[in-house]
């Protein structure tokens, strides 16, 4: 299983984590159109190559963090806390 690099715990097996989803900045709920909102909810970019996603170290330090992962090789590096 791939290794996920938690910023606080180092590289750990992916089974310790919960994958939250592709990192997307949350649109302003007051002014967003329904089309843009559904795009935010249901349409990930899903690239072939590097993607930024949020992971939760469920069986470890229980921090949320962002990860840049290459979807072709599953190599990854943390890119800081998972703040939107």
């Amino acid at each position: 299983m791939m290794l996920i690099r938690c910023p606080w715990c180092g590289p750990r097996g992916a089974a310790e984590f919960h994958y939250i989803g592709e990192f997307k900045p949350r649109p302003d709920a007051q002014s967003v159109t329904s089309a843009d909102w559904r795009d935010y909810l249901y349409v990930p970019a899903n690239p072939s190559g590097p993607v930024t996603e949020t992971w939760y170290h469920r069986m470890g330090c229980r921090r949320f963090f962002n990860l840049e992962r290459d979807t072709l090789t599953n190599e990854s590096r943390a890119v800081g806390e998972g703040i939107r």
Binding site: Y56, E81, R84
Partner: peptide, 10 residues
């Protein structure tokens, strides 16, 4: 987890 998610990320 939901509570922690909103507190930590947003």
């Amino acid at each position: 987890e939901w509570l922690e998610n909103w507190l930590q990320t947003t």
